[in-house]
Write a protein that binds this DNA or RNA. Structure first.
Lengths: 218, 218
DNA sequence: ATATCATATGACTCGCTGGTCACATGACTG
DNA sequence: CAGTCATGTGACCAGCGAGTCATATGATAT
């Protein structure tokens, strides 16, 4: 659910952008596949250049180092994700909290289905809290999903859509994390499925968030 | 919340158990610290032997390889955790679902506070789904927390404590994952705290699981 | 004194890593 | 033709990893 800002603290070189689009794509595709398959530390520049079909020296004419290309890919990913979220965010005033949440979840799943590699990279990043690269990413002024949900929750409490006695920071964290969990679960347990099933899954999940697990009094 | 079984598919050598307990402890402590600080792949046998004050060759007289010592530590961790969970599990028939859940969460937090290194190793392992070591661990017949919560949920539904229209597998997964999230959140956001606060945090969280986030009708 | 045995050791192999650099290629200029 | 500039290249470097092995130590038994 994180929405990356377009920070330009690090960037590919001019040389990279002078490249024919075809070649640039080969490099990006190879790098995306590599970072989707391996953590930042485990990812190998050697494999990226091999799969991209370029020389290692060339790679270092395009990117300063491994971190540079990784942050660039996160930027691309953020832009792609923003395209999915933008319509919802634009009209966010019109929704009640749970409806908004539902649409955010649905968009999140759609994004993950359309861009599984980006989703995988994001997932791996979220799991790497505490590593140097995670700190570097946060340093690059990437706003967190937690912060976003804090705002949403505070708003919902003000509108009396959500009970006021919750620990907002903790539930923002939980909601953000559950977003990832639900997407992951959904993607793993329904390879062949149509949107109807997906919407139903999300609806039932949102219903749980709203009313809980307890059986209604008989 | 996972309860490790005591599988003996791999084990330290007899030589290891002939060692004076003091030396064995040094090695385990060094290894625990290493695997708590780094993922399985990133963890370094060189650092372990350096911190344990033994020669590398000696290490390989005690353990077959990196995986061997890792699985052994998971076994130790599982035994330690079982000690916390056993009293609850023994009387599990007497609780209602949400009370049982609460006690499981509390015990989980207490375990994490008493054995932060073990908790960290478990956390890192759960985050490494998809890697070879994760597969190896699952192969070593470690029962998952998911499976455990499936049983609990099915039971609770039969007793009409939990609504029957949920996707049991998915919520088992969510509850297991949220367990880890809540423990992590609690440990990070309350360095100086007494049990009263902790119990209150868990109670409010269980209350959310029970009744949801929606504000009660005014 | 000698043989046997469990244990201890660290230099070594081999493979892979991120990153560098001297040089090659080829297009465009005067 | 030579000069210049952007781009391409892969051998190379230093470092670190897991795992091996010939050798050393020292205790016990004979």
């Amino acid at each position: 659910m994180t929405v990356w800002s377009l920070s330009f603290l690090t960037m590919p070189t001019e040389t990279f952008f002078n490249l024919p689009a075809e070649k640039r794509d080969m490099i990006c595709q190879a790098a995306i596949a590599e970072f989707a398959a391996h953590s930042f530390e485990q990812a190998s520049i050697n494999r990226i250049v091999a799969n991209a079909g370029i020389a290692k020296g060339s790679f270092y004419q395009y990117f300063a180092n491994k971190e540079d290309i990784f942050l660039y890919l996160l930027q691309l990913s953020g832009q792609a994700k923003l395209a999915y979220l933008e319509p919802i965010l634009r009209n966010s005033g019109e929704y009640d909290f749970f409806a908004l949440l539902r649409d955010l979840y649905v968009s999140g799943i759609q994004f993950a289905e359309k861009h599984p590699e980006y989703a995988e990279i994001g997932k791996k990043l979220m799991k790497s809290k505490g590593t140097p690269i995670y700190a570097a990413v946060m340093n690059a002024s990437m706003p967190t999903a937690d912060e976003f949900f804090v705002l949403l929750l505070e708003n919902a409490i003000r509108r009396k859509e959500v009970r006021a006695d919750i620990d907002v920071a903790m539930f923002a964290h939980l909601i953000a994390a559950m977003n990832a969990l639900v997407i992951e679960y959904y993607c793993e347990h329904s390879a062949s499925t149509h949107d109807g099933t997906m919407l139903a899954t999300v609806e039932r999940f949102i219903d749980f968030l709203k009313y809980g697990l307890a059986a209604p009094a008989a």
